[in-house]
Amino acid sequence: MSGHNQHGDHHGHNHGDHGHDSHHHDAHDHGSLKSYTIGFILSVILTAIPFWLVMNKTISNSGTLGLVLLAFAAVQVVVHMVYFLHMNSKSEGGWNMMALVFTVIIVVIAMAGSLWVMYHMNHNMMPSMMPDAMHMQTAP
């Protein structure tokens, strides 16, 4: 018994509700039938609506529709993280969440940065400017 208590202390977690017979698992929640079912139903809904929106051309403005689609995807990613990957701020002593937050920051920088840089590059390299540049190079 004392060993199990120490185990709890070492990990800095409170697993009072979990039972210690399977102690090699208790740092990570497996989820239950209920949580998997909720996650699945939410995912089906969050997948079906974007497909329906695009296939029936419900929103005519593609900019707006694109943003709506991205919003649905973001919500579904969170649903998967919570119900399938069992992410919470406590798993692995918070390091899972730290790694995830770091990754999300890098992903956002990579995506937004690429689009921003490439958009401006395309903008400043309009085809109309190309012959001049070619001329300047070949003239001397």
Partner: peptide, 29 residues
């Protein structure tokens, strides 16, 4: 108690996060 289970899950999570960065590059492309 510091059996590899816990650390290998964290390590695997870190692998997944780096895999996520590969996909981020491909998505950006």
């Amino acid at each position: 108690e510091h059996h590899p289970e816990n650390s290998s899950l964290l390590g695997f999570w870190l692998y997944l996060m780096s895999d996520c960065l590969i996909f981020a590059c491909l998505f950006a492309t």
